[in-house]
Amino acid sequence: MNGNATLGLRRDGRVAGALYLVVVLTGMFCLAYVPSQSGGMIAEAAAHAGLFRAGIAAFLAMQVAFLLLPFALYRVFADVNRGAATLMVALAAVSVPIGLVAVTHRMEALSLLETAGANAADSANAAFALCLQRYGHGLRIASLFWGLWLLPFGWLVLRSGRIPRVLGLLLVLGGAGYVAQVFGGLVPRVADSALMGYVRMPAALGEIGSCLWLLAFGARVGRGGAPQSSLS
């Protein structure tokens, strides 16, 4: 790989890292912080109405960035194995319309919040809780693909070494953890087990680590170089 191609690879990696950073930051805000603050009842959410709206906006921004991210990563890994890179893009992209449909239920909850206010009747609280429940169900389906796309992504990292291979291993383990959590959540005893709280930890470490590496250093050629013949 010549010098221009190496510089292009680093540039493409940094672009992917910047998009990944948007996904990570907005995801932490809308999927973790906002739900922990706004609660599941209208009275609780009304006290943080601005935060509730910001969570919806952050989720929409996350979906846009997550739609662009796999295409940016495709530029980094397509010459390693085009089939795996295409699968990575397809699995990630499938989750976006699912997530957008899911967030419409949270927007319905926002409408109830604005209409009913803090002194909502029991029926309004029940409708509000149902909207949040439907939103959660949509996220569960989307999270299946949030895990599946990590499998080809992690495999490409392991094969190419364009970012540290330990991150590729974490991505693969994390992708499997997402899938296990989705299907395990359908089994009562498994869903309630303490293990379910940890199965996605490798994904968090792998994704944040990959994001920061790409942002700081871009993609590298890798110790063994890229198998150019895999383009055919």
Results as ranks from 00 to 15, higher is better:
1 M>D: 05
2 N>S: 10
2 N>C: 10
2 N>T: 11
5 A>L: 15
6 T>A: 15
8 G>Y: 09
16 A>G: 12
16 A>Q: 08
19 L>E: 03
25 L>Y: 03
26 T>W: 01
28 M>V: 11
37 Q>T: 07
38 S>C: 11
41 M>K: 13
53 R>C: 03
57 A>F: 10
59 F>H: 13
62 M>I: 00
65 A>M: 07
66 F>A: 14
70 P>D: 03
73 L>K: 01
73 L>Q: 08
83 G>A: 14
83 G>E: 10
86 T>E: 15
87 L>C: 12
91 L>F: 12
94 V>A: 10
98 I>Q: 09
98 I>R: 05
100 L>G: 00
104 T>M: 02
105 H>V: 07
107 M>Y: 08
107 M>N: 04
108 E>R: 03
109 A>L: 02
110 L>C: 03
110 L>T: 02
113 L>V: 06
115 T>C: 01
115 T>G: 06
124 A>M: 14
124 A>H: 13
126 A>Q: 15
130 L>S: 14
137 H>G: 07
142 A>S: 06
145 F>A: 04
145 F>C: 10
147 G>R: 00
155 W>L: 13
160 S>T: 01
169 L>D: 05
171 L>H: 05
175 G>I: 04
177 G>K: 05
179 V>F: 09
182 V>Q: 05
185 G>E: 08
185 G>N: 04
187 V>L: 12
193 S>T: 09
194 A>I: 03
195 L>E: 10
197 G>Y: 05
203 A>I: 06
204 A>T: 08
204 A>D: 09
205 L>I: 06
206 G>N: 04
211 C>R: 04
216 A>S: 13
216 A>P: 03
219 A>T: 07
222 G>R: 01
224 G>K: 12
226 A>N: 07
227 P>V: 11
228 Q>A: 15
